[in-house]
Design a protein around this nucleic acid. Structure first.
Lengths: 196, 196
DNA sequence: CTGCAGCCTGGCCGAGCGGCCAGGATCAGG
DNA sequence: CCTGATCCTGGCCGCTCGGCCAGGCTGCAG
């Protein structure tokens, strides 16, 4: 029997190479387009070696996703504990951008693979977390307008992190925070415009 | 033998229901996560009925995508023929937003299904077209910054069209044009800030 | 040396896939 | 009535998939 209870979310060290290889392939071919054999091939091992460390493909999916979701969750917990709206939003934006950059590949993949999102109960939490991000960044009275701008800001932040893999983190961070602030302020004035 | 040369891109009328059903399922499960049998089931016909109208799954994919790509292409041709930069960008934005709303489901699906994009040569054109959109909306001297803002604006426009299916088209259109203009102006000032 | 985990292999299974085919049902035109 | 075109069915094929198993190899503990 394996050592580190391979049913668990697979924290980090032992199976990291499998998680890494899987993420590479998920990014390129999508979850449904990636077979366990492909993952094994990339590491020079057999398909069975993959199912040894992760009892099922769903479990591997969870292991790839879990660290990023955990990080996002704690980030949101922190930000939501701030009482005043201004600082809370500011903190949420910078922390979210930092999170996106640190978890670049996972975040970019999750936002572009319908197949993965439809597949497993692992991704209900992802939906909940996205709603919390929206609520922190886009506070509005008109729910429809808020939803539109919420989707716009989250997508605008996620979009660039994949296309420009060679962009240095610091530069990307500055631009993303600019973009986020711009859209947040834009939503506020759109709302004001609508109220009148 | 079928009537309308089912190898062709399948313009509109005859096989529209297949294309429609396929798009529904692609949106929900992704291209790789959708089988021909699922498409047939949704229409109450057999899997073989699908392969009768479209010789292969790739061909069905092309039929789903072709109308949207054609429309985008002609839209871009029109916009690119405008000489002065200001009106050209303005025209490109409004036409692109109108296109996104008219082709809501296809556009939203294409931007979220890596599996489909990786699958076929049909999607090389999609990449080219996206570059042309970027070039029209985001003209910049610094290529890296331009790429970041280009990805941001296209994703920001595509993002909301799926999440809010019940939002009335006119309202959505106004908000998206706001968002687009905001990001275009934002990129210009970011560029100015950087040049100094 | 022996025993025993840990890691991995090759091979097998049932299921589902895309694709193909022969043939049945329906209908319009001669 | 016959014929050909159109649309569709049930069934088959070869393949790949995720998952499982028995067993082999390595290295460490007794």
């Amino acid at each position: 029997m394996p050592s580190d209870t391979p049913g668990a979310p697979a924290s980090d060290h032992p199976n990291a190479r499998f998680v890494e290889a899987a993420l590479d392939l998920f990014l390129e071919h999508g979850y449904n387009g990636t077979s366990l054999a492909m993952i094994g091939d990339r590491l020079g091992v057999s398909k069975a070696a993959v199912t040894y460390h992760f009892h099922s493909k769903d479990e591997l999916l969870a292991a790839v996703v879990a660290p990023a979701l955990d990080e996002l969750r704690s980030l949101l917990d922190d930000a939501e504990s701030i009482k005043r709206e201004g600082p809370r939003r500011k903190q949420a934006l910078t922390a979210y951008v930092d999170y996106l950059i640190r978890q670049r590949r996972v975040a970019a993949w999750l936002s572009r693979d319908v197949g993965a999102l439809a597949h497993s109960a692992v991704f209900e939490p992802a939906g909940k977390l996205n709603e919390r991000v929206d609520a922190l960044l886009i506070a509005g009275t008109d729910p429809m307008v808020a939803r539109i701008w919420g989707a716009a800001v989250t997508q605008a932040l996620v979009g660039p992190i994949l296309t420009d893999t060679e962009a240095p983190d610091a530069e990307l961070r500055d631009q993303l925070i600019d973009i986020g602030n711009l859209l947040i302020r834009g939503h506020q004035s759109a709302q004001r415009r609508r109220a009148s």
